[in-house]
Design a protein around this nucleic acid. Sequence first.
RNA 1: CGGGGUGUAGCUCAGCUUGGCAGAGCGCUUCGUUCGGGACGAAGAGGUCCGCGGUUCAAAUCCGCGCACCCCGACCA
Length: 448
Amino acid sequence: MREFTMKDAYSFDADDAGLDVSYNAMFEAYRRIFARCGVPTVPVQADSGAIGGKGSQEFIFLTNIGEDTIILCDTCTYAANQEKAEFVRPTAIPGAPAPIEEVATPGVTSIEALTEFLGIEARQTAKAVFFMAKQNATGESFPVFAVVRGDLDVNEVKLANALGGVELRPMVDSEVAAYGIVAGYASPVGLRDDVRVVADLSLNDAPNLVAGANKPGFHVRNVNLGRDWTPAVTGDIASAQAGHGCARCAAEGRDGHLRAERGIEMGHVFRLDYTYTNKMNVAVQDANGGQLTPTMGCYGIGVGRILSAAVEAHFDDAGIQWPAEIAPYDVHLVGIGLDRDAEAAADAEALYAELTAAGLDVLFDDRDERPGVKFNDADLLGMPVRLTVSSRNTKAGVVETKARAATEAESVARADVLSRVQALRAEAIASCSVEAIERIARAGSAPA
RNA sequence: CGGGGUGUAGCUCAGCUUGGCAGAGCGCUUCGUUCGGGACGAAGAGGUCCGCGGUUCAAAUCCGCGCACCCCGACCA
């Protein structure tokens, strides 16, 4: 669903402690909302991006058709957007710095080709990517030369953050040439001073790498950071990938590994901090009559996506299985052959009235259709509970009861139908606890 | 913004290459039979072939312009 109708909410507090209370209350409320809607979401650390502020968390519905890449730990509960995910970099091959040495590599312009040509591993190379950056605040534009170890990929969002909030775009060929960079053989060694070099953490303690020679057809061996080149900025600018170590687990002495999943953003909560209240000079009176700038939180839910995600997460071959809290009706009452049996018809009408009086929403199928058509429609529409009234059942003094998810129907004495329906409803609601839903969510992607 | 595709009955679509009476399945209406997991027979209704213009004896079909919707791309040298 491309359309994105947002439910928005904002909080204003006098101080950081107040924001913490508001933010946490909203965060917990969101977990309960998604759970009750039966939408399996995982709370993940997110990049605040263009919105700004001091950190945010997204509620992600994991599904193969998702547009976002989410990194999850298989051991602890760490989960983060790929633009945010911290990870433990695979170790480099140790060694004493050796003399730099040029090597001819005709036609070898990619990391893959380079490792094959020289018979080395990707982590023994340095990969360079170049961008034009525009400082958001000043509008100043400058070239950026990002370097990561060859086994990793540059993450643009992380790179932009490492540069203090800039807008990045890939260099066009003319710019590449203008800054004296040779694409395919680019090197941080001997680069012009006006190009800002940013190094990933993976380059620390990674000796004797192979990098470009900055002339066509040649690379150089034994490039060492610090000796041969010095970055202007060093930071986390590489994407976490499946198989990498979990940073949280490492910090706590465990050995967790990350996996990657696709997901759709269902909601997002931000600590906006003073970003906007400062910018807009918001001031309120404090308890002592003085002026106070409030701190903000911002909270959104993609309302329309809840419906499609709920269905995506709850269906079978026969149709939808609505989570109880958001089902259009609580009960699907199927009448069989009512036009040919006045007694059964009266029974169905009475049951409809009884359930409605008890506060249940009832969809009453009194069409003159064959039973098979009605049962199939009931499965397709997917209300949580199906009741069947027919002359056979009425004569026996029972009503057939079936939860949508159940495989078998049960005959319930007419007098006990209401309490049985209420019990099934209570069960269905209980199955959507925060714990249950988030366990389902983390278990993996729903089918596309 | 770039590339590709689609537009025909209520719905899903064929027909377009090679111009010649507007089609199918499902759904709908009526009648009869049937009646606990998508019944059967018979009869029937239903169209601005996205719009405008052009070519032609003749256009759903060919040509031009326009509109709408869908998919892919617009990151990793």
